[in-house]
Amino acid sequence: MATDTSRAPRQTVVADQEQRAFRALLDAMSRPGTIHTLPEARGADGAWGSSLVVMQSLLDHEVTFAVEADDRSVHEQILRRTGARSDVLAAAGYVLTDAAHALDVIEMASEGYLEEPERSATVVVRVDAIGSGALRVSLSGPGIESVQPLSLDGLDVAALHALIERNAVYPTGIDIVLVDPQGRIACLPRSTRIELED
């Protein structure tokens, strides 16, 4: 190719991580229920590390967030890493929760409006494992050729029932990003139909 790119600006390490995390999210959101891996990132270790990588790739001081988790330090870390503004659960644009609080979050988070369905919450749920576990679902809808199976560990079935109910009146609804501590992610956008398997 003709273009001389030898002096092109380099991506910083953090920006590079954010870009890779975004592409993993984009793949996951485009193909609901498929499992993708977050990039190796600085500060991605620990129980909340991969969740924070997701939050960091999406948040800055233009948006609001809420955290529903027993570990209060997570809230502080997001503030410090992103500069995003803290808001109440019902109004926050981005919500991070653990599986224990997922039911409350799914019931409370903003679903947007018919005219502006995009003004809804994106909910990041930390689960114990994606791709294995007792909770098995079958997904269908946009992004899925026929049926996409997904197994999860650590999420309560009641939370999924609540999600099915919240997303019943498309196009309003909430979009879920599932994250596990191993850096795996999978998405359940509002357009996905979820069926629980026995």
Binding site: A15, E18, Q19, F22, L25, L26, M29, S30, S57, L58, L59, D60, E62, V63, P117, E118, T122, P142, G143, P171, D175, P189, R190, S191
Partner: peptide, 18 residues
């Protein structure tokens, strides 16, 4: 980076609401 993040957030919403 902020502009990119905003566009990325928008893309994810767009994908979720085809």
């Amino acid at each position: 980076d902020m502009a990119k993040r905003e566009i990325r957030r928008t893309i994810l919403k767009a994908v979720a609401i085809p």
